[in-house]
């Protein structure tokens, strides 16, 4: 199982905070992104923009990253703390 978490405006657009995917064998982050875009069409534009960062297990992940069973993937819109 891979847990996907949405934050801030992404959470609002997805209308949920968490979505779980039954992923057993490792997949490329891009493949997971495609699943998320399929399930949440409202997020498509933002997930394709460079401004939304991705984390895997609370660390920033590059576009070539691989997601495996048990991982937590965060979709992080532009930060606005401070």
């Amino acid at each position: 199982m891979v847990t996907v978490r949405f934050f801030a405006m992404l959470k609002g657009l997805a209308k949920t905070e968490i979505k779980e995917y039954d992923i057993k064998a490792p997949v490329k982050l891009d493949e997971l992104k495609s699943l998320v875009k399929r399930d949440f069409p409202a997020l498509e534009g933002l997930l394709e923009s460079r401004s939304v960062l991705v984390s895997i297990n609370q660390e920033f992940a590059g576009k070539d990253a691989v997601v495996k069973d048990g991982d937590e993937v965060g979709f992080l819109p532009p930060f606005s703390g401070g």
């Binding site: 934050f7 801030a8 405006m9 609002g12 401004s51 984390s55 965060g74 992080l76 819109p77 532009p78 930060f79 606005s80 703390g81 401070g82």
Partner: peptide
């Protein structure tokens, strides 16, 4: 660095409702 790297998000309440801030 905090503004650049820390996953914290601000929403502002205005007369138009609550809006997430996307740039700092």
């Amino acid at each position: 660095e905090l503004k650049r790297t820390t996953p914290i998000w601000k929403s502002e309440t205005t007369s138009k409702g609550e809006v997430w801030v996307s740039e700092t």
